[in-house]
Design a protein around this nucleic acid. Sequence first.
RNA 1: GCGUCGGUACUCAAGUGGUCAACGAGGGCAGACUGUAAAUCUGCUGACCUUAGGUCUUCGGAAGUUCGAAUCUUCCCCGGCGCACCA
Length: 396
Amino acid sequence: MENKQEELLKRGISAIYPSVEFLESKLKSGKKLTLYLGIDPTGPTLHLGHFIPIKKMAEFQKAGHQIIILIGDFTAMIGDPTDKKSTRQPLNRKQILNNLKDYKKQISTTLSFKGKNKAKIKFNSKWLGKMKFEDVLSLASNMTVQQMLERDMFKKRMEDGRPVSIHEFLYPLMQAYDSVVMDVDGEIGGNDQTFNMLCGRDLMKTLKNKEKFVITTKLLEDNQGQKMGKTEGNMVALSDSPDEMFGKIMSWSDGLIISSFELCTNVPMSEINQFTKLLEQGEINPRDLKMRLAKEIITIIHNENKAKVAEQNFIKTFQKKEVPDQIKKVKAGVNDLLIDVLLNNKVIQSKTEFRRLINEGAISIIDKEEKITQIDELARPAVYRIGKKRFIQIEN
RNA sequence: GCGUCGGUACUCAAGUGGUCAACGAGGGCAGACUGUAAAUCUGCUGACCUUAGGUCUUCGGAAGUUCGAAUCUUCCCCGGCGCACCA
């Protein structure tokens, strides 16, 4: 029991405000706490970065606390300025609704939306969308420009002579107001959200005289502190197939292994510490550890069986250089050109890309180990490999 | 409102009349190497073609000057900075 609490308050945690002791006393009181995680539906898929706080939420849920997932369908229209160098393109309502369509499905593998203590989903357009301008004004009077300017990224943009819009100033305020309306005890989020979440803490104190606690989770980063962003291409999306996840995780740099184990799996910390030692002493091949990592993550997001299958596929495809079990199959006419078939099926972006790939010797027929060198190559029934990762089976 | 500087490809960022499909960096793609990687090295990275070449479309928008414009002119849109305005 004591152990669980320690896990809850330490594992994957970056900081706790106002203090760890404060939260501990809250937990000890035995009261059921309400805490929330805000997600802005800025894209259709959630990724591993979202997963980390979600997983932490799940731990609290298991401990009997009330969990709220707040979909920032209103705030998403403005866009969180965090980490953005320039003003974000506002999203329209339709795009937002489309984005959040599958969120619940993607989250439900981790959090429970069923049973006694089910997680709730709320939308902040419900209250933010109804505010009158005067409501906004009185809310805005609780925060100063100076407070906003404390934000590095605003400061930096000003120094660089880049625009900072008023509506972006309002973003942290809106997020802060979410806390107040929902009257939560605490909030969880990635440590890049610290500023926004602390604004909520301040506002809660001002308006409700209540101490909201804030838990920030660590971000995925390698041992050199390099942040793993979704722009880096290998960010695992929660909607990825097990095979895709496995491949992506295996291509992570080794430095990411330990922190990923801590943040994304349920492997006990004692075991993870053991891994650290083994790695340092070179007594274990990082590849094997990564395979374990991939399996653990896929088990949580999908299930154990799928994780095993994904592992088998990976071994088959990459270690033994065989073709994966499930590849895209496409029908083609006898006289169709390969270039057209690939283009029509969006395996390649343009004919020019095809030419490039051919020049690079990247396209080949698997069985015959034959490289395609002609642009007017016919689409023969065979399994083609394009580069390392793309496969397509053409049938007549 | 006045003045001034600026808006360049996925991102950042050079270029200021022809040698510009546009230097460089990041990202992406491909090849070599490997542990599947990462790092490193090499090549590619607007589109279309009969491909060491050609054609077309791009440098905020529109019109113009010119044999020729991302580069010059005019107007417009959008931003930064300074000044003014502060009823």
